[in-house]
């Protein structure tokens, strides 16, 4: 079978679908002082999963607020800087109105994913961390 680290180079999704690949990518991102980008990407996926579950309305609102405060509120943050102003405004309005929309972080996650695919992911595949591992 194809070794996992070869699959990781096929696409960002292949990398993020493997615990070892995530661990290595996270180490690399932390070296580059942008580990929050990956955590935010997973937080958006986790939020969608929680949203799909029945009940927990209070927890969903609390989580939406926590994600917003941690990653988006501070415009100088590594995540917030890579999300379009209109996308941030939409999320801010949802949080302010306590109107927790299941898809409220989808656009932001798409923009962060595009930024990873364009920048950090290709650089990771050329990084010492990845090359030493392979």
């Amino acid at each position: 079978p194809t070794p996992p680290y070869v699959k990781w180079a096929e696409s960002l999704h292949s990398l993020l679908d493997d615990q070892e690949g995530i661990h290595l990518f996270r180490m690399f991102l932390r070296q580059e002082a942008c580990g929050d980008v990956l955590d935010f990407w997973f937080a958006c996926s986790g939020f969608r999963k929680l949203e799909a579950a029945e009940g927990n309305e209070e927890k969903k609102v609390k989580l939406a607020k926590a994600i917003y405060k941690k990653y988006i509120l501070d415009n100088s943050g590594i995540v917030s800087r890579q999300i379009k102003p209109a996308t941030k405004s939409f999320i801010r309005d949802c949080v302010a109105k306590l109107h927790v929309d299941p898809a409220m972080f989808d656009q932001a996650q798409t923009e962060i994913q595009a930024a990873m695919e364009e920048n950090t992911y290709p650089v990771f595949l050329k990084s010492d961390i990845y090359l030493e591992y392979t």
Binding site: D17, Q19, A43, S45, L50, L63, A66
Partner: peptide, 20 residues
């Protein structure tokens, strides 16, 4: 703040792939 960070960590972990 702790509870918010805990909630975030739980959310991030829930989205991670299971060990193959």
């Amino acid at each position: 703040i702790d509870s918010e960070d805990d909630l975030l960590q739980e959310c991030i972990s829930s989205a991670m792939p299971k060990k193959k």
